[in-house]
Simulated scan of single mutants.
Amino acid sequence: MSAMRYLLVAVIAFAAAMAGVWAARAWRASPAHGEGQIHQLLHRDMTLDSRQQQRIAALEARFAQRRAGLEAQMRAINGQLAQAIEAEHGYGPRVAAAVDRSHLVMGQLQKETLQHVFAMRGVLRPDQAARFDATVARTLTDPPSPAP
């Protein structure tokens, strides 16, 4: 194999690795944007009674545990992706399989996040739910703030 071909394979592998890193960072950054606004609404801007606070705290604790598990799975898959890129030096079957696994876990996290949001909404009074709905809609449509 010529030196030029080795260079091309190295550049492709590097680009694939950077794409994986970018995707992982985007995946991790986007929930924080929405969660921050929803968390602020629930805990600072909205007057919740003590029963509502207790129920939401329990929901948040359960979800935090589940999210941590899914994030651990994503880290493991990212390690598998890195190994596959190292082994294949291109978009081969191992790389494709790792990408597919990461998409499944990201999709599961998105589904469970939405279930969590709806569970918290179920704790609210109708007037609170209307404000909550508006905040959720805004977090889904507003671009995240640029990182400092």
Score class of each variant (00 low, 15 high):
residue 75 R to Q: 10
residue 94 R to G: 03
residue 94 R to T: 02
residue 67 R to Q: 12
residue 66 R to M: 12
residue 80 Q to I: 02
residue 97 A to F: 07
residue 40 Q to N: 15
residue 60 E to P: 04
residue 42 L to T: 02
residue 66 R to N: 09
residue 53 Q to M: 14
residue 45 D to W: 03
residue 50 S to R: 15
residue 83 Q to L: 08
residue 85 I to L: 15
residue 87 A to F: 07
residue 83 Q to S: 11
residue 43 H to R: 14
residue 84 A to E: 02
residue 95 V to N: 00
residue 82 A to P: 01
residue 68 A to Q: 11
residue 73 Q to G: 06
residue 86 E to L: 15
residue 39 H to S: 10
residue 39 H to D: 14
residue 70 L to H: 03
residue 97 A to L: 06
residue 86 E to P: 02
residue 92 G to D: 08
residue 69 G to D: 04
residue 76 A to M: 07
residue 74 M to E: 04
residue 51 R to H: 14
residue 49 D to A: 10
residue 40 Q to I: 14
residue 45 D to H: 03
residue 75 R to H: 07
residue 60 E to D: 15
residue 47 T to G: 07
residue 91 Y to L: 15
residue 77 I to S: 00
residue 55 R to C: 10
residue 78 N to V: 05
residue 51 R to N: 15
residue 87 A to K: 09
residue 81 L to T: 00
residue 87 A to S: 12
residue 43 H to W: 15
residue 90 G to A: 08
residue 73 Q to L: 06
residue 65 Q to I: 09
residue 97 A to Q: 13
residue 77 I to N: 00
residue 77 I to R: 00
residue 43 H to F: 12
residue 95 V to A: 01
residue 46 M to V: 08
residue 79 G to Y: 04
residue 53 Q to H: 12
residue 93 P to I: 09
residue 99 V to A: 06
residue 96 A to R: 15
residue 69 G to I: 02
residue 48 L to K: 00
residue 68 A to I: 05
residue 55 R to S: 13
residue 64 A to S: 14
residue 92 G to W: 07
residue 93 P to V: 09
residue 65 Q to T: 12
residue 41 L to Q: 02
residue 79 G to P: 02
residue 81 L to E: 01
residue 81 L to C: 01
residue 64 A to H: 13
residue 51 R to I: 13
residue 98 A to K: 00
residue 66 R to F: 09
residue 91 Y to R: 10
residue 96 A to P: 03
residue 86 E to D: 14
residue 45 D to P: 02
residue 69 G to N: 01
residue 76 A to T: 07
residue 38 I to C: 03
residue 73 Q to E: 08
residue 74 M to F: 01
residue 80 Q to R: 08
residue 67 R to H: 13
residue 70 L to K: 03
residue 66 R to S: 10
residue 79 G to C: 03
residue 49 D to L: 09
residue 46 M to A: 05
residue 95 V to P: 00
residue 89 H to K: 14
